[in-house]
Amino acid sequence: METIKNYYLMDMGVMLGRSLRHIFRSLDTIITVTIMPIAMMLLFVYVLGGAIQTGTDNYVNYLLPGILLIAVANSIGYVSYRLFLDKQRGIFERFNSMPIARSAALWGHVLTSLVSNAISLVVIILVALLMGFRSPAGILSWLAVAGIIALFTLALTWVAAIAGLSAKSVDGAGVIAYPIHFLPLISSAFVPTASMPGPVRAFAENQPVTPIVEAIRALLLNQPVGNGIWVALAWCVGIMIVACLVAGRVYKKGG
């Protein structure tokens, strides 16, 4: 058993390399997780942006945090889909009958989600810079932003893992993506919640995406983050822990 532990990181690296190849070879995935968010950013800034009042002098400065979260949310359906295929096609069975730690295959998918999202977010931020995005934030604030987005990604990835591992069909595996896509749309990602009618506003202000968006925006604009950041972190960590435990249980049962 000693050797299995020693090789754990190496094995996970092999799994990561494999899933990253899946992503880079799927035009569909690249379009959904990178091109679509960029297209949305262009649409909102250059088509709708003129009519949106956010209180910031530059709308792309207001918009970028929401676009980053949308990019992450868009990638979640694919995590679920990839996990489902591995389960259905017997790939997990093959790995689990080999001298590899049983969790390496699952963690490989989680790590892939983190790495692939990091890549697409960097591309999106570069495009935003070309569109006039500017931030006075220092390195610590950027690190905090990276940390929050990583936690958000992990939380959604584990939710997607539950869906992918327990799905009975490909369509079922992808269904999880829809409610998650909607969360950023009904939040302060595009416009301040103050402009929304009562019930919508109440939902928008009390769902996880709004405090996360607000925290990232405050950090990037060098504004005080207030208590909102703790609410944001609590949502991320809470969802992550619960989803991770459930997914782990489903994985063990199925393996």
Partner: peptide, 17 residues
């Protein structure tokens, strides 16, 4: 696991690779 290998009922190859 160290001493066996399994070829399951459905060809478990990675189709994208």
């Amino acid at each position: 696991r160290q001493s066996i290998s399994l070829t399951g009922q459905f060809a478990a190859v990675d189709e994208i690779l």
